[in-house]
Amino acid sequence: MKAEEIQHITSFREHFGTWLALIILTVMTVTISVFGADLLSLTVVTALAIATTKAIVVGYYFMHLKYESRIYLLMVGVVMLLFIVFLVLTIFDYVFR
């Protein structure tokens, strides 16, 4: 194995920081949902935006994507792109029906 594949040990500090960010985002999304009802249709968008931010944080830090070789990021990107296109093409049918 190449030298760059020597494992990287993530510090407890970084783990804890990641966790804190996730908790803050959770509090945000609940607060917006419960008290910010006047955002109307935007609530879905904000809720999904926050959820996606959380998912990226989990993937990047907890799942080590930050330290993996680029190929993993590429794969995750392609898979997410595929899935989003599935959704977009399908909803395209329903929106114009």
Binding site: S33, A47, L48, I50, A51, A55, V58, F62, M63
Partner: peptide, 17 residues
């Protein structure tokens, strides 16, 4: 972590409408 990520989406989609 993947199980966690799935829940991250399930939570707003069902509870926070």
């Amino acid at each position: 972590h993947l199980v966690d990520i799935i829940w991250i989406y399930l939570f707003p989609l069902f509870y926070l409408i």
